[in-house]
């Protein structure tokens, strides 16, 4: 089955097919259509939708419902994501699965409602207090808004860790064809850790406090081990990289703009390719180095070099990187990007 839908709606379609139990959220542009879809779908499925009093509230409602082993989701943007960071830290500390969708808008502060990618560090590097990481997935199409929401639930339950679907206002607002998922995901077995109000789960305990320094340290090592294990779930997509002399890289909307630029460059006879991470955390470092070694790299992003910094961090050869970025709600233009790549390819950048 095919439907022509908005990215934001595709998120909720994905959540429904992932078997979501509850949505807790506070409205914010440009993410609100996710809440609208949740409010329309979930009650009809006998599931829970609740408009929370604020994002601090919604994150903690998720914490409560996730404690019972339920599949929970929320969506927000910029300022709302900031308020959710407390909850994300607690979710990670207590090893609870939850999915949060960030439809990034321009910032800092109130910023505006237009697309940006300035929440990269917040999502990928932790954002809240303490030693933790979220799983971060970066869709680049309406289809992926749905599919990666489903994957986010799978990974969140596999690792008992919060997962962020990091999209932006373009992906949230645009419409494309969506091939609907075939079936609803299974209910995972959570009896081993969840508190469900049943005798068998009575001795399970959801908490993140360790008064003893050694126990807290051990807990942090355990979380870190989990983040190491996640690396095997890193994903990326390459487009025409095999024979490329110059690699463009970006995620989400930037990756789509880069893909258009690659096509233009190829027509001009410049061997360009695209490396697009699908998971930002874990970062597909192996895949990046495999296709980028010895080549010029042009990073495209709608933020101030946050993604570039990670590319540099993970690259074996750090000399090869040029940044091309736009901010404030302005999108990088294909023609401008083509110009930057041409210069880089000639070694002038």
């Amino acid at each position: 089955m095919r439907k022509f839908v908005r990215g934001n709606e595709a998120v909720m379609i994905g959540a429904v097919y992932a078997g979501v139990d509850a949505y807790f959220g506070y409205p914010i542009t440009p993410a609100s259509e996710i809440a609208h879809a949740a409010a329309e779908y979930l009650p009809c499925l006998g599931k829970e939708f609740l408009q929370a009093e604020c994002e601090t509230g919604s994150a903690n409602m998720m914490y409560g419902a996730a404690s019972a082993g339920k599949k929970v989701i929320s969506a927000s943007a910029g300022p709302g994501m900031s308020l959710m960071q407390e909850g994300l830290s607690y979710l990670a500390g207590a090893q609870l699965p939850a999915v949060v969708v960030d439809i990034m808008r321009a910032g800092p502060g109130l910023g505006n409602i237009y697309p940006e990618q300035g929440d990269y560090d917040q999502a990928v590097k932790g954002g809240g207090h303490g030693n933790y990481k979220c799983i971060v997935l970066a869709p680049a199409s309406v289809q992926e808004m749905c599919d990666l929401t489903i994957l986010a639930f799978d990974l969140a339950f596999k690792y008992r860790n919060p997962a962020v679907v990091l999209a932006d206002a373009v992906l949230g607002q645009m419409m494309e064809s969506l091939i609907l998922p075939e079936k609803v995901s299974d209910v995972p077995d959570t009896d081993g850790w969840a508190v469900k109000g049943r005798k068998e789960t009575k001795d399970n305990l959801i908490f993140s406090i360790y008064l003893d320094a050694d126990r807290q340290e051990a807990h942090n090592f355990l979380l870190n081990k989990k983040y190491e294990e996640m690396k095997k779930d890193a994903r990326a997509e390459s487009y025409l990289t095999e024979d490329a002399d110059v690699i463009l890289t970006g995620y989400g909307t930037s990756a789509r703009i880069a893909r258009s630029a690659v096509d233009v460059l190829r027509e001009k006879g410049i061997k360009a390719g695209l490396f697009r991470p699908i998971t930002l955390s874990p970062f597909p470092a192996k895949e990046l180095n495999a296709c980028a070694t010895g080549k010029k790299i042009v990073v495209v992003e709608m933020s101030n070099g946050q993604y570039r910094d990670d590319v540099v961090l993970h690259l074996e050869n750090k000399e090869q990187v040029t940044l091309f970025n736009r901010m404030g709600g302005n999108l990088p233009k294909v023609a401008d990007l083509v110009g930057v790549v041409e210069k880089a390819a000639e070694g002038k950048a």
Binding site: T56, N60, M61, Y63, G64, S67, V195, G197, N204, I206
Partner: peptide, 16 residues
């Protein structure tokens, strides 16, 4: 069964 909530959030957690 017990869930330990963040500071101030027991009501939100209980709501969830």
């Amino acid at each position: 069964g017990h869930v330990s909530a963040p500071h101030g959030r027991a009501s939100a957690v209980a709501t969830g």
